[in-house]
């Protein structure tokens, strides 16, 4: 019995280099479209001519310019970057744990980043630059903890996810405690918990920039090595892959990316889970293609969700996290229901 609709995603990924390039190009165009839409539309209607005027004159006093420059531009950049970073982090974590059910959100990496970021805010309210560092550190600790659980305790895939959920809920409880104890320091905590981009500044995104760049670079360097992990640990090692080192580096990259994204976007759920799945369906499991596809798909997905969050009940605005969970939740459920027994993460 099918209770949920199938998602209309092609089941056969593109196999030829040409096909993959076409998919990547399509995703790039989609991303471009999402960026333009995100700049063009919002709760405040601005006509196209007003926009062009504002851009041409750069008049600080015009409302259109200020909305564009201080509201929509930071928001668009933040959405694009956070979506791409979380999707890439999800791809990395799924590869390292060899588990499709894993994502930065599911195994508590986002919550770890969020908890550490909030701790930093309460301990040193004036040092905003500390937030990305703290978020990265929290993400890394959580990811390493889950990874060591998987390796040392030899947890099965399902148990690992459950352990992640437990860790995640402990950390979320920590965040809630901080919110209650220090309400003045962590204004906007609800928005942070749900994830969203209202009030995000370009500065916040920029201060996360080095972490994002380092994470993305590391991920790119690991693409082929992570492909080998698909063969299973034993085969990968016998081909000369330093399995432990590669896994550690990939976790580091995922923590850099997820921590940086959480530091300005809050606890965005489901991007890191849902997007790698869609990207894998479109382009296959080769990380050299899958990673850029995940980044583009993640960025455009978050931008489109954010646009919906701004427009649906305008002038009221939903945090984008709610919109994404509304979309991501059913997807995750259908994934659980349709999962067939297959080895490896590549269903």
């Amino acid at each position: 019995m099918r209770i949920l609709p199938r998602f209309y995603i092609p089941t056969l990924p593109a196999r030829s280099a040409k096909g993959r390039a076409a998919v990547l190009l399509g995703l790039a165009l989609l991303t471009l479209l999402a960026v333009l839409l995100s700049l063009r539309f919002g709760s405040q209607p601005i006509s196209a001519s007003q926009m062009l005027d504002a851009l041409r004159t750069g008049d600080e006093k015009s409302v259109a310019y200020r909305i564009l420059r201080y509201m929509r531009l930071p928001r668009t950049v933040a959405g694009l970057v956070a979506g791409g970073a979380l999707a890439l982090a999800g791809t990395l974590i799924q590869a390292v744990l060899n588990n499709v059910m894993a994502s930065p959100n599911v195994i508590g990496v986002n919550a770890g980043a969020g908890f550490a970021a909030m701790l930093a805010v309460t301990l040193a309210p004036s040092a905003a630059a500390l937030i990305p560092a703290a978020a990265f550190f929290g993400a890394l600790c959580t990811a390493l903890f889950i990874y060591l659980l998987a390796v040392r305790a030899g947890l099965s895939r399902t148990t690992l996810i459950l352990a992640g959920v437990a860790v995640s809920s402990i950390l979320t409880a920590g965040i809630d405690t901080l919110t209650l104890l220090y309400p003045d320091d962590v204004i906007g905590a609800t928005g942070f918990m749900l994830g969203g981009f209202s009030g995000v500044t370009l500065d916040a995104v920029l201060s996360a920039g080095p972490y994002l760049a380092a994470g993305a670079l590391l991920a790119a360097l690991l693409a082929v090595d992570l492909n080998l992990l698909q063969l299973g640990e034993e085969s990968a090692a016998s081909l000369g892959l330093a399995v432990g080192r590669v896994r550690f580096a990939a976790i580091l990259a995922a923590a850099l990316l997820a921590g940086a994204a959480v530091s300005f976007a809050g606890l965005l759920g489901f991007v890191g889970l849902l997007v790698p799945h869609i990207a894998r369906r479109l382009i296959g499991t080769d990380n050299r293609w899958l990673m850029p596809a995940s980044v583009l798909a993640g960025g455009s997905f978050v931008l489109i969700c954010d646009l919906a969050a701004r427009m649906l009940f305008a002038p009221f605005e939903l945090p984008v996290g709610i919109v994404m969970s509304l979309l991501g939740g059913p997807f995750f459920l259908s994934l659980l229901l349709r999962r067939r027994k297959r080895s490896g993460i590549y269903d």
């Binding site: 060899n98 492909n227 063969l231 299973g232 034993e234 085969s235 016998s238 490896g344």
Partner: peptide, 11 residues
């Protein structure tokens, strides 16, 4: 070395 247990990735 070809171990006995191998996964079957979709490649």
């Amino acid at each position: 070395f070809l171990p006995q247990n191998r996964s079957v990735p979709g490649i």
